[in-house]
Amino acid sequence: MTTTEIFTSELPVGERFAIQRTRFEPQKAGSKKIKRISIVSGIHGDELEGQLVIYLLAKWLKENSDKIRGIIDIYPAVNSLGVDTITRGFPLYEVDLNRVFPGGENEFLPGQVVHALSHDVKGSDIAIDIHSSNIFLREIPQIRINKEFSPTTLPLAKELNCDFIWIHDAVTVLEATFSHTMNSLGTNTLVVEMGVGMRLTKEYGTQLLNGILNLMQKEGIIESDEQFENREPFTSEIGDVFYLNAPCSGLFVASIDHCAVIKKGDKIGDIVDPLTGSILAELFAPNKGILFTLREYPVVYEGSLIARIFGENDAEN
């Protein structure tokens, strides 16, 4: 286990900014080519679920170093300044690091940071970028996949013990993301979204740890007698995602639990006005299915996302 700084920069007043990576390698170096996996998190500084997953993974690898057959690189806090300061974007610049890839050495500091990351991860067989939604929405453990790369990434996603795989169409603006950049460079990259910003969801942490161990076992990166749990995910191929946005501004009060199986017309919550004690809008499910995204942050404006529901293609939907 070795920890290295993949990027450093002196800050103006007596502090050094660094992005760190820890590498786990097999105890005995063999001659045959081994696989490499990179686990990345904290591109958004307000998303912390990846911190827990990577902690659990590092702990497992330390305790099971004899079972390592490949290279495992972990990068828990890409936006390290942001992680320590509840800042989603790159502090000072207020830019979303996941919109400035691939970056470059001659670019502004956030561009240099993402360039250093993609340069370092390049050459990995697999990369996993762990996100935890944002502070506004809570998500069940899910993988997001760009259709363009799905022939190679979908089989890997199915090994990650997640609940849902969402295959989306290519969008030009998303070419500036880590996953698009790495997939284009030949690293099969998966984006995990789970939990909520600024919080840890312990059971999700363990769930994804099992998924990562399962994937690494299948790929020959670890070799263990243990059977790792791998649940069967549902994929967006067999249905549609329905969006529920706030019809007006106010305070959202949910009436259901996250991740509920719901029927069309089920009550999802109210948007209320505390000042007058009135209900401004009652929200109902537009279809039946699984509510996989639920508003966590209660202040909403007209248009704020309240819920996403995945429903299978059938007569009722």
């Binding site: 974007g89 207020e94 506004f136 969006y243 404006y301 007209e302 248009g303 704020s304």
Partner: peptide
Amino acid sequence: ERYWPLDKTNLNMMFPGYGLGETTQR
């Protein structure tokens, strides 16, 4: 604040907009 105060999204990254989407898309 620099961007949209609630979610810090940049309005100049929301065009052409979407009437059924998020606040800043609308």
